[in-house]
Design a protein around this nucleic acid. Structure first.
Lengths: 339, 339
DNA sequence: CAAATTATTGGGAATGTTCCCAAAAAATGA
DNA sequence: TCATTTTTTGGGAACATTCCCAATAATTTG
C-alpha cells in the first residue's frame, strides 16, 4: 500500500486484461467492449486510480503545463495578471506553474532551470529589475519552447510581448498635472533596467518639453522600488530649496508612500503638492485623498499574454511571427490632483 | 532540432560513452575519470542539456514538488502565506505548484485531481467556502501523500493544521469595542462552512456574554465574502430602527467596505459607529480613519505549514502524529475605534 | 455453415533516467 | 611480468503510459 500508486497494470491484472485494453477503456478509445469499459472504470474509481501524468508527459513530450515567472506578488498587479492568464490557459487544457523570482536574478535563473527540467510547454515571464542578461530565456527559444514577455519585456528578443503604452500613460499623467497649473513636476522613476520605467520617463520628459517646461535633473530620481527608499527620496525632494509642486510616481505603492510622507509633514494635497501614480491599485481609490493614477487593464495583460502563447503553441509547424500587443491606459483623476 | 531535447544518450553517442557513464558524470557520482567528467560537462553545457525531471520523477516516484491550493489570491493574505511556505520548501529542495480554486468546489476538485496526476509529494491547502465534502482530500491521505491545512481547516481529518486563534482574536476585538463604550455591536460574519468564521462568531458571542450584553440576532449577518454583498448588508444594518454603534467584520476588506458605506452616509467614525476588521491587511493602515484590526502572523502561517509538511515527508517510516499549530493574534488599535 | 468482415484484445516498443551488476581497463604489488 | 586489486565503463531492468500492429473473438453475409 505504502509508496505504491495504483497503475493500469494493477487494474489489468485484477480483471485479467492487458494494460492496452485498460488504457483504451480509461482514455475513452472507441474500440473497447462497453461491458469491459464499465468494469475498468468501476475498478479504477474503487482503487483510487489516478493517471500518472509523468509517464504520459514523458511519452508524448508535452506536459500541458505553462510556467509563469513573476518578480513579486505582494502588490495586486501580478496576482491579477496570473488570474487572467490562468483563466485562458485552463480553458485550453493547460496547467500553470507559478514561480516567484522575488526580484532576484539568481532565483530567476534557478526558476528557468527548474521549468526547463520539468519540461513546461511554454513560458510567460516578467523579469526582475536585476535582469540585464537574458541568456537563460534564450535557451527556451533554442529548444523551441515559446516564451511571451509581459509588463517587463526584453527588447532584444524576437518573441511575443504584451505591454501597456507606458509612454502615453506617463505623458498624459504629466500633461494633466501641467493643466492643473503645476510647474515643478518631480518624477520618482523606476530602475533604468526596466523598459517600462524608461518609457514612462520618456513620456514625462516629452510632456515637459511640449509645454515648454524646463527639465530639472534634481527632480528626477531613479530608484529600486523598495518602499523604504521611496520614503527617503520623497523627503529629499521636499527638502530641496525649491521643492516640487507635483510628483509623478512610477507606480501606486510609491505614490501612496509619498502621500503618507507629504501628509505627515502637514502639506496640503493637491495644493502644495499634487501626486500621480501608475496602475490604479484597488487601494488607490481608498486612500485620502484618492490617488490620481494611470489605470492599466491588468487582467487583460494576462489574458493576452496567454493567448499569444497559445497561438504559438498551436501553429508550431509553419513559420511563426512574434507579435507585440500594446494595451492602452486610462487616466483616473482623483483628489490627489484635483479638488 | 525541433521537438527534440538533448538527452544523456545524445551526449553519450557524441563522446562514444555509455549513458551510464554520462549519467554518473552529470550527477556527480565519484566513479568517473576526471577527464571524462569534464568532457561530459562541457558538452552538456554546449548542447543546452537539461535533465528531464519527468523521467527522474517517474523512476524515483518522487517529484520534489508540493502543491498549494488557495481559494483566492487577490487580497494580500494568500500571496503572503505562499511566499512564506515557498521560502521554507525551496530551502528543502522542493518546488511549488500553486493552484487557485477561486472559491469554487468544482475547481478545487479539479485541482486535486491534477496534483494527484502530476504526483506531488505533498499538499498545502486552504479550502473554498463551498467545500463541505472533503473526500477529494482524503484520497491524498489514502495514497500516503501528506496534507496540511492552513487558515481554513477541516476539523474531521486527522492531518496537520495551522491556524490562528480566531476565537481569542475575535473575543479581544469585541472586548475592545465594549471597553470604548459600545453596546450594540453588529457582526458581519463569514459563511458557516468556514471553521475560522465559526470560531470568530463564538469569540464575538462570548465577549458579549462576559459583559452581560444581550445577543441580538438581527445584528449578526453571515455572508459569502463577496464585497458587493457586504455593501448591501452594511446599509441594511444602518437602516435598522435601532442601528448598531459598532461593527465587527469577518475580515479587513469587509471592514473597509463598511468604512466607505458609513462615510458616504455622513456618519462619524468611531463616534456614531466604530469598526473592527480582521487580518491587518497593509491597506488598513492607509485608509481614513485607520482600521482597528486583529493582526495575524501571515508569513509565519505559510512557514509553519511548510515545516509540518516537511516533518511528515522526512520521517515517513515510523508512525506519524498529526500536529496542530495555533498562532496568536494581536489587536491593532487605530482610528476606526478610538480618537 | 463457411467465409469474410468487424469488433475487441494482447504484445511490444518507446519515452529519459538511475542504479545494480558485470565487464573491461588501468594501476599496483611481488 | 603476471596476478591481484582498484578504477572506470557498459548493459540491462525498471518506472507508467500510449500507440501501432498483429492476433483473436464475435458478428455478418452469401
Amino acid at each position: 500500500m505504502k509508496g505504491h500508486q495504483t497503475t493500469i497494470i494493477d487494474i489489468a491484472k485484477a480483471l485479467n486484461l492487458s494494460k492496452s485494453t485498460v488504457s483504451r477503456a480509461l482514455t475513452g478509445h472507441p474500440n473497447v467492449k462497453v461491458k469491459t469499459r464499465e468494469q475498468v472504470l468501476a475498478l479504477a474509481t474503487q482503487m483510487d486510480y489516478q493517471r500518472n501524468q509523468l509517464a504520459i508527459s514523458l511519452l508524448t513530450s508535452q506536459t500541458k503545463t505553462i510556467g509563469i515567472i513573476v518578480p513579486e506578488f505582494l502588490s495586486f498587479f501580478f496576482p491579477k495578471v496570473i488570474i487572467g492568464a490562468q483563466e485562458v490557459l485552463a480553458r485550453a487544457g493547460y496547467n500553470v506553474v507559478i514561480c516567484h523570482s522575488n526580484e532576484s536574478y539568481e532565483i530567476e535563473m534557478a526558476n528557468t532551470r527548474g521549468l526547463l527540467a520539468s519540461r513546461v510547454d511554454g513560458l510567460l515571464v516578467s523579469h526582475t529589475k536585476e535582469t540585464r542578461n537574458f541568456d537563460h530565456f534564450r535557451i527556451f527559444e533554442r529548444k523551441g519552447v515559446p516564451v511571451v514577455f509581459f509588463n517587463r519585456i526584453c527588447e532584444d528578443m524576437a518573441v511575443s510581448k504584451v505591454t501597456v503604452d507606458d509612454y502615453d500613460g506617463a505623458f498624459r499623467a504629466v500633461e494633466h498635472l501641467i493643466e492643473t497649473g503645476k510647474r515643478r513636476i518631480a518624477h520618482l522613476a523606476g530602475p533604468d533596467s526596466l523598459q517600462n520605467s524608461r518609457n514612462r520617463l520618456n513620456g514625462y520628459l516629452d510632456a515637459l518639453q511640449k509645454y515648454g517646461l524646463p527639465m530639472d535633473p534634481s527632480l528626477i530620481i531613479s530608484y529600486d522600488l523598495t518602499l523604504d527608499k521611496a520614503n527617503i527620496y520623497v523627503n529629499h525632494l521636499l527638502n530641496l530649496s525649491q521643492p516640487p509642486d507635483a510628483l509623478f510616481a512610477i507606480n501606486d505603492p510609491t505614490a501612496i508612500e509619498a502621500l503618507q510622507v507629504i501628509k505627515a509633514r502637514g502639506l496640503k494635497i493637491p495644493d502644495d503638492i499634487a501626486v500621480v501614480g501608475f496602475s490604479d491599485d484597488p487601494i488607490s481609490a481608498l486612500v485620502e485623498p484618492g490617488l490620481t493614477t494611470v489605470a492599466q487593464p491588468v487582467t487583460e495583460i494576462g489574458e493576452q499574454a496567454a493567448r499569444l502563447l497559445l497561438n504559438q503553441l498551436q501553429n508550431e509547424d509553419d513559420r511563426f511571427e512574434p507579435e507585440t500587443v500594446v494595451l492602452s491606459t486610462q487616466l483616473i483623476v482623483r483628489g490627489s490632483t484635483k479638488r
